[in-house]
Design a protein around this nucleic acid. Sequence first.
RNA 1: GCAGGGAUGGCGGAGCAUGGUCAAACGCGACAGGCUUAGGACCUGUUGCCUUAGGGCUGCGAGAGUUCAAAUCUCUCUCCCUGCACCA
Length: 941
Amino acid sequence: MINYKEIEQKWQKAWQDAKAYEPEVSDKESLMVFAAEPYLDMPQHVGHLRTYGTADVYARYMRMKGMNVLYPMCFHATGTPVLAIAKRLQNNDESLIKRLKAFHVSDKDIEKMKDPSYIAEYFRNEMKSSMQAAGYGIDWRREFVSIDPIFMKMVEWQFLRLKDKGYLKQGRHPVGWCTKDNSAVGQHDTRHDVQPELEALVAVKFKDAYSDIYFACATYRPETVYGVTNIFVGENVEYVVASVNGVMMYLSKDAATAMSYQASIKIERDISVKDLLSKRAINPVTKEEVPIFPGYFVKSDVGTGIVMSVPSHAPFDYIALQRLSTSGVKVPMPPYKKLISVEGDSSDEIPALAYLNALKAGINSADDIIESATKQIYNDESRRGVMLVGKYQGRKETEAREGIKKDLLSGGDAFEVYQIANEEPVFCRCGTRIVVKIVEDQWFINYGDKDWKNGVHTALSKISIYPRKLTQAYVNTVDWLDMRAAERAQGLGTKFPFNQSHVIESLSDSTIYMSFFTYVNVLKSASVSPEQLKPEFFDYVINSIGSADAVSSTTGIDIMVIKGCKESFDYWYRRTSSHSGPDLVNNHLTMYLFNHVALFPEKLWPKQIVTNGFINYEGEKMSKSIGSVVPLSDGVAKFGADPLRLAEITAAEIDTDTEFSLESVNGVISRNEFLYNALLDIDSLKGTELEPIDYWLYSRMNRKIEEATEHMDRLELKSAYIEAYFNSIVELKYYLERGGHNQMAMRDYLESVTLMIAPIMPHLAEEFWHALGKSTLAAKERWPTADRSMINEKIEHIYAMIDTVVSDIAQTIELTSKIDANKGKSPKSIKIIIADDWKRSAYNALSKTHKIDEAMRDPSVSGVNKEVLGKFLSQFMKRINSLSPLPEIKNDEVFIGFAGSRAFLSKRFGVPTEIELEGTSKSPRASRALPDRPSLEIIWG
RNA sequence: GCAGGGAUGGCGGAGCAUGGUCAAACGCGACAGGCUUAGGACCUGUUGCCUUAGGGCUGCGAGAGUUCAAAUCUCUCUCCCUGCACCA
């Protein structure tokens, strides 16, 4: 039995002693592999293995291919999550405490975690030890956290230079806002971790016909302003007259409060619904005067609490008017004006009614049915609608919407109202309902800059992207990214240089951290202080501005240290490979490109980005902090690092999400035992002469090396290990089953397999390597190379024929047992008759020419009786188009192969097996032999 | 809504950019047999349908098309997943 715990400890120590993963600058080709910096708010779980393990396998593989490979690691603690945990613990949040306990965090540590800095420290240690336990070949000399002062100096440099280049801008911006905490809220700040979604409504201003006060009618569909028949106000809603940026308006009280975070609002006085109902308002577009009615569906906390009524296209408006009408109120009656027609719809019926009818909905229907009619109209008209009226007549509805919105806004006839778009209200953790606030003078990174985008497109065109299918997603993200907030009022992180009371937003501070790996060890070992890391230092190291001399005198850093940093950066940043999950494509990874294009010399721009799919565990996405997850350290302790690594990393190809079950690890464990036993048994193998089956094994081995290498080079780790591991085992069994017993062949085979599994099961590979009598570290060995001359098509073809014969015999015995003559009998012996050589020649000729007459004229079959030849060839005509040529083998070679397998065949079927050649066989079935399928005769008795 | 990615056997998932070697890799599950006191693990075989000699039929979301030939190419449709920002 393999003791995983024991071999893990043994070889982890050996690697450490040999400094196997602490590469130095050299004249070898360099590669830095790095994976997304993990966030210090939860332990590593087995799902993380997908990304960090893939990076590790790749790093190990490239090292075995002869490159000088660096795999460093750092941790992310910037932003609010760490603070949020501390705060929740201070409030004794039960669910969080429960989760932490599931991760084996002790009561004592939970208590200490009320201090955020302890959270970072705790998880940093936890992650590091989990990663070591999993066998990652990380250079820990370069470890840092994103809140280390020396790192923050680099981030500061980053933002100084972004501003110099004109990429930082100030402006106004809507955010989700807690009025009690006075701060912006993101997903993790809300109750139940809901992402607050923001949306903008257009509030169209209908002037009161008899005063200078406006009805602010909020709508998603300003293009329907042409069909307004009236205005609705809520019956039980409180209304006020308020000045909005100096203009008097009617608004619901709730709206006035909410909007006070978006504009200058002054409530002048209350106004009753009754008063409002007595007024009339003027449509700013059509100039029509319309009445005001009570709308049962109007809510005070949506939009402005006032809506315009478009009964032709809005089912709620239509129903509300119907209800008023039946209760005796005199309201605008049909026909209502149809404003938009959907392609292919020729009826004159107004859409609101048509869609309600389609749902069999009427005046008394429940709101959710009317709601669904509303959604259908919205969808259909947005997708295929064309305007029938107004300035944008004939244009697509979506274009008209944008056009009218723009016209109204610029003409002062409307303004935008932001609100939370979530179906349910969103609450801050403190219990306050979230509103939308417009933040003024907010600093942004302007990813909308045209020239900058062009630069990123250039960079993108030269980067290797895995999986390739994501390429388009990157291209689109580059085009789509626009202004992005760069500073934040709360959270850990580097102070924003142009507003010291804010910190740099934590996605923005993690775009160039990977460059810091290249020289942080030099800074640390020279004990360089943060104060010494002036911008000039980074200008020099990264962009070769100035000289080491000059930087040394400005900063006081030893000149050799500066030169060391520069050399290290230039060396390690030449070639990099970034590894992460697919959720980062739309943000971090694209911003990573933007920032490099802005701040780094072109030759050091990113070279390769690899993203892997998610791992689901018991139906839940493990990358999310919620739900049940298995800590990595638990997985390693239970199954062993290597089986876990192999099972998870090869669970799916890199581009697919997958379900992972810990049970699948068991299959790996038993296969490992088989390999290990085969390895221990080598000495008992006595064969010295190479037999056909040995040539077969060498052929398969070299083919496997070739194929596995191709897959590895394309980061197709699953396919690579199906070859290098799973199929190796299948073939080894095949070899032994067929009597393979050559010690040298077996040793060569197992050495290759051991080296190929070294990247994915590094501990086991060391154990095997040493069991094979080696004294070096497998981790430092070279990946095997295929010897093409050992790939033997003929021998593989012969064994494929034998396999076919095995299944044919089984099938034939099954079928012939039902013949009356054979009832009560059992097979006594089996004859296998190998076809004459001319059949193969004729078959190959036919597969080339596709014509019987031409094939018959082929010189290779000149001596064959024409009638026999014609009859033979004619049987292939029905599948003439799918014939493929066979290797040129002589039937005596085939005979030797079959003869070598006689013992196996006899054992397999429990009866004597004879091999004959067609030419000398006396069997009546001899002439049925085909070149790739010997004829069979089962003798019953 | 916008953008990206998907749809294959009982299940997960290859294959589809280079159409034929595909009843479809690999794994799981199921069934039968072996081993075992029993269970688990492990080993062997079977696992679309039909077939009295190695054959045939149906099939890769739906529909249409191109082709001698389509899981693979083209078009249309339906459904599913992911992201949409100040949040790491």
